[in-house]
Simulated assay, not measured.
Amino acid sequence: MAITALLVAALPLSIVWISRDTNKYRKLVWISVFLTFDLIVFGAFTRLTDSGLGCPDWPGCYGEANPFIAHEQIRAAESLLPTGPVTMVKAWIEMIHRYLAMGIGVLIVAMMGVAWWRWAGRRGSGAPFAPAARGVAAPGFSTFLFFFVCLQGAFGAWTVTQKLQPIFVTGHLVLGMSLLALLAWFGGRLDQLHAPLPRAAGSESARLGRIRLLAALSGLVLLVQLALGAWVSSNYATLACMEFPQCGGAWVPEMDFEHGFHLWRDLGKTAAGHYLPFSALTAIHWVHRNFAAVVLLVLGLTAWQAWRVGGLASHARWLAALLALQALSGVATIYFNFPLAIAVVHNAGAAALVLVLTMINYRAKYLAAPAYQ
Rank of each mutant, 00 (worst) to 15 (best):
L7P: 12
W185F: 14
Q162A: 14
G311K: 05
R308V: 11
Y362L: 10
Y362R: 11
M255A: 00
V41R: 04
V252D: 07
T49Y: 04
L367T: 03
L220T: 14
L173V: 04
S218H: 09
H346E: 05
A230M: 10
Y366E: 11
V224P: 12
F257A: 01
T170I: 09
F147W: 08
W17G: 14
T159I: 09
V8H: 09
V86G: 08
Q165D: 14
L226T: 06
Y362V: 15
R317E: 15
A133H: 06
I360D: 00
A133F: 11
R363H: 08
P82W: 00
G273P: 13
V252Q: 09
L322M: 12
G121T: 08
Y362I: 08
L319I: 14
G63P: 11
L340N: 00
C150M: 07
P67I: 13
G54F: 10
T159K: 02
F141P: 15
Q152P: 02
N347C: 08
S329Y: 12
A2G: 15
L53P: 09
L193V: 15
A154R: 08
H288E: 03
G202F: 02
F261P: 03
L267I: 12
G60W: 05
A10Y: 08
G63H: 02
W92I: 12
A70N: 03
D256E: 00
A76D: 12
A154G: 07
P85E: 06
L7A: 09
A77L: 12
G300E: 02
F144H: 14
A352L: 13
P85N: 10
T87W: 00
G176P: 02
V149N: 13
A343R: 06
L190S: 15
S279T: 05
F291S: 14
Q326G: 12
A101Q: 07
A195P: 15
W304A: 11
T49M: 02
V344K: 09
V331R: 04
M111H: 10
R122A: 01
A115T: 05
R98Q: 10
H346M: 03
M112W: 12
L213V: 04
K163A: 12
G260W: 00
L222T: 13
I334F: 00
A272K: 10
